[in-house]
Computed example of a mutant assay.
Amino acid sequence: MTTHLTAPSLVALFLLVTLWNQTSADHSEVKLSNSGICHDSSSRSYNRTKNFTPFQSLEDCLDAGGRLPKGQVIERKSSSSALNEYRREHFGSGWADTDSDCQNSRHEALIAQSTGQVTFKDHRECIIRTGRWISMYSGKLIHDATVIDIDHVVPLKWAWDHGANEWTRERRIEFANDPVNLLAVEASLNRQKGAKGPGEWQPPTNQCQYLSRFRRIAIKYDLAPNLVPPC
């Protein structure tokens, strides 16, 4: 006997599949909350976090300036070969607040690079809300801090692959928060760049300025400056 689905049954099946796919997708993304905390699906606050910026991985969220929920740690791989693999945590758990003034290095970079007065999220003046930034990567004027990523000019993974794997943890944290290596740019271009070196990616504008800065940082930290293309 052949069973034929009625139109209402087909509609119900379609809605069920759509809902299942949406639920699966929602739980695969990492949520950066307005308070700057990265919640993956294992976080107790994951489902309660409604206002957030989505990321594909926990490391991407930490790279963008987020921090782990209190008491949560990144699971470490047990194999000895994993010790030489890049992980964001090798450079610290997100942005550091080295002077304990509640402004981590992301927000200090936003303040330093704003060409106008910044405003804060609240009276504590820890989190920047607005300012006036001109992206070196595009020349565009940006006022909303939530659409800005702080880019590591020399990406952390690129640094790891070119010598930072032999550094102490303290030196890697210093590198990850060095203002010379931090640029306020639009999130879209920072994520397009990813961990690519200057031979694979350069910004749409100001390429010579970008290459000069990349080379200066590579020389400072002895990270294969000979691999930086000439301008």
Score class of each variant (00 low, 15 high):
Thr146Glu: 15
Ala159Asp: 07
Arg172Gly: 02
Val154Asp: 04
Lys121Asn: 11
Ser100Asp: 05
Tyr137Trp: 06
Leu141Ala: 13
Gly163Trp: 05
Gly131Ser: 04
His162Ile: 05
His152Cys: 08
Val118Glu: 02
Arg169Thr: 13
Arg171Leu: 13
Ile148Lys: 01
Ile150Phe: 05
Ile127Gln: 11
Glu85Val: 10
Ile148Gln: 00
Ala109Leu: 11
Asp151Glu: 12
Arg171Met: 11
Ile148Leu: 15
Glu166Phe: 08
Arg169Cys: 00
Trp158Leu: 13
Trp160Tyr: 13
Gly92Asn: 09
Lys140Thr: 12
Trp167Met: 08
Gln113Ser: 05
Trp133His: 03
Asp122Ser: 12
Tyr86Asn: 10
Trp160Glu: 03
His162Tyr: 11
Val153Ile: 15
Thr119His: 02
Asn84Ala: 14
Arg124Val: 12
Thr168Gln: 09
Cys126His: 05
Ile148Phe: 05
His90Lys: 15
Ala96Met: 09
Lys121Ser: 13
Asp144His: 15
Asn84Val: 06
Gln103Trp: 01
Val147Ala: 14
Asn104Glu: 03
Glu89Asp: 15
Lys121Met: 09
Ile148Arg: 01
Ala96Pro: 04
His90Cys: 11
His123Pro: 07
Glu166Leu: 13
Met136Thr: 10
Ser93Asn: 15
Asp101Met: 01
Lys157Thr: 00
Ser138Ile: 08
Ala82Val: 05
Glu170Tyr: 04
Asp97Val: 00
Glu125Ser: 12
Asp149Gly: 05
Arg88Ala: 11
Lys157Ser: 14
Arg87Met: 14
Ile134Cys: 06
Ile150Trp: 02
Ala159Trp: 05
Gly139Thr: 11
Ile128Met: 00
Leu83Trp: 07
Arg172Val: 02
Asn165Ala: 15
Glu166Trp: 02
Val154Gln: 06
Trp160Thr: 08
Glu108Asp: 06
Arg129Trp: 02
Arg171Glu: 07
Tyr86Val: 13
Gln103Ser: 06
Ile148His: 00
Glu170Asp: 14
Thr146Gly: 11
Asp97Cys: 04
Cys126Asn: 06
Thr119Tyr: 02
Thr130Leu: 04
Asp149Trp: 01
Ile148Pro: 02
His143Tyr: 12
Trp158Gly: 06
Val153Glu: 12
Pro155Met: 09
Gly94Leu: 01
Glu108Met: 00
Ala145Phe: 04
Asp101Gly: 03
Ala164Pro: 07
Val118Tyr: 00
Asp151Leu: 08
Ala159Phe: 07
